[in-house]
Every structure is written in structure tokens, then in C-alpha cells.
């Protein structure tokens, strides 16, 4: 078993109203950033996980997403793993 740092990105489902993204988009537009076509806001969750391999760490984290970390009705998730000595932020 090795330690892995797993990054879980939880994002609102495409097409779902994202009022936070809308508010930030509005603020960016008023700052003159006209190039921004859309803004979506999600959350990043970092887990320190003991696992046999990066794939194993990802698999464990995906199970956690299905159970707890993401709401399947409204959110998607994306999981990546790095060895703990190359820690994500």
C-alpha cells in the first residue's frame, strides 16, 4: 500500500442552473472580460488515500463520490490520483 493524494472535482451537471457561476460571470463581464462565454462553479476535495496503485486510489475515491461526495441528481465528479510525494495543493 502507498499513499496517494486524490483530487475529486465535483461540478454541477451540464445544463443545470448554476447561480454561483452566473453571478461570477456577471462580475467578470462588468470587469471587462468579455471573452468569458460561461462560468461553472464546482468544488475540489483532496483526499489522502492508502491504496495499492493510482488506479486503486481512483476506484476507491469514485465509490466515495457515488456514496457521499457528489449528489447523483445534480452533480458530476472527476477523480485523479498522484503519489503523495507529488502532492496536489
Amino acid at each position: 500500500m502507498s499513499q496517494f493524494t486524490v483530487e475529486v472535482l465535483v461540478t454541477p451537471r451540464p445544463g443545470l442552473l448554476d447561480p454561483q457561476g452566473k453571478a461570477i460571470h456577471h462580475a467578470l463581464s462588468s470587469l471587462g472580460y468579455d471573452a468569458v462565454a460561461d462560468v461553472r462553479v464546482g468544488k475540489a476535495i483532496y483526499l489522502e488515500v492508502a491504496a495499492a496503485s493510482p488506479d486503486d486510489a481512483v476506484e476507491r475515491a469514485e465509490e466515495m463520490c457515488r456514496k457521499l461526495l457528489a449528489n447523483p441528481v445534480t452533480e458530476d465528479f472527476h477523480v485523479t490520483a498522484a503519489a503523495a510525494d507529488r502532492a496536489l495543493p
Binding site: 443545470l16 442552473l17 447561480p19 454561483q20 441528481v73 445534480t74
Partner: peptide, 17 residues
């Protein structure tokens, strides 16, 4: 109750924020 799956759907952030 929605999170527990005893009722369908979800409650999102208010549209007004």
C-alpha cells in the same frame, strides 16, 4: 430526506443566491 433517497430530487442554491 432527498439526500437519503426517501424523496426524489434535490434542493439547489436559491436562484437569487
Amino acid at each position: 430526506l432527498c439526500e437519503a433517497g426517501l424523496l426524489p430530487g434535490a434542493l439547489l442554491r436559491n436562484e437569487s443566491l
